[in-house]
């Protein structure tokens, strides 16, 4: 799920950036620092959308660095248990398949793939139904349900399932 929230961060700025462009420098450093990072609480920071407020800077003794408390708006992405996601398959093997939804890595084990789909080896390993009508392979797009999530400092891991109604392949690259 995506959220638009306000977060706060203490930014340390080198004295060489002080001047007319202080604010711009602060914002670009903020974007560089936080976009693409993960926090266990909020998930993956997709983009900074605006600055709410920049507090008074505090000068650090000895270094001359200044710390500014910055409140900013950003879009975050965090998967939840029970959420339905669409993801792109990145790897298929006999254990199941791995898929990605942006920064989120999802594993769907073969226990959670419908029983009528069977693993086929070859240079393009895939899961196929016995009649061959549905095929999951690398680059397929699938709709899946999250049953477990774990957020690390830089990565989000999820366990997914497609063993439920209306889940599975939504777009097969082979047929396009």
């Amino acid at each position: 799920m995506f959220f638009h929230i306000v977060l706060e961060r203490n930014m340390q700025l080198h004295p060489r950036y002080f001047g007319r462009n202080l604010r711009d420098n602060l914002v670009s450093k903020l974007m560089k620092d936080v976009e693409g990072t993960c926090s266990g609480r909020h998930g993956f920071v997709v983009a900074v959308t605006g600055i709410e407020n920049i507090g008074k800077g505090i000068i650090r003794d000895g270094t001359g660095f200044v710390t500014f408390p910055v409140k900013y708006q950003c879009v975050v992405f965090r998967p939840f248990k029970g959420e339905i996601l669409e993801a792109v398959v990145t790897m298929v093997n006999k254990m199941g398949f791995f898929a990605e939804a942006g920064p989120v890595q999802i594993f769907v084990s073969n226990h959670l793939i419908p029983d009528d789909m069977e693993f086929q080896t070859g240079d393009m390993p895939n899961y196929t139904t016995s009649d061959g009508s549905v095929k999951i392979q690398k680059d397929s797009e699938v709709r899946l349900k999250i049953i477990g999530t774990r957020v690390d400092a830089t990565e989000i891991f999820c366990i997914g399932t497609i063993k439920d109604d209306f889940l599975g392949v939504i777009n097969d690259p082979a047929t396009v």
Binding site: M95, Q105, S109, H111, I146, G148, T149, F157, I159
Partner: peptide
């Protein structure tokens, strides 16, 4: 719990 991915069970999603 046949195995784990990112320290979650690959079958039930439990930590």
């Amino acid at each position: 719990h046949p195995g784990s991915f990112g320290e979650m069970c690959i079958r039930c999603g439990q930590k």
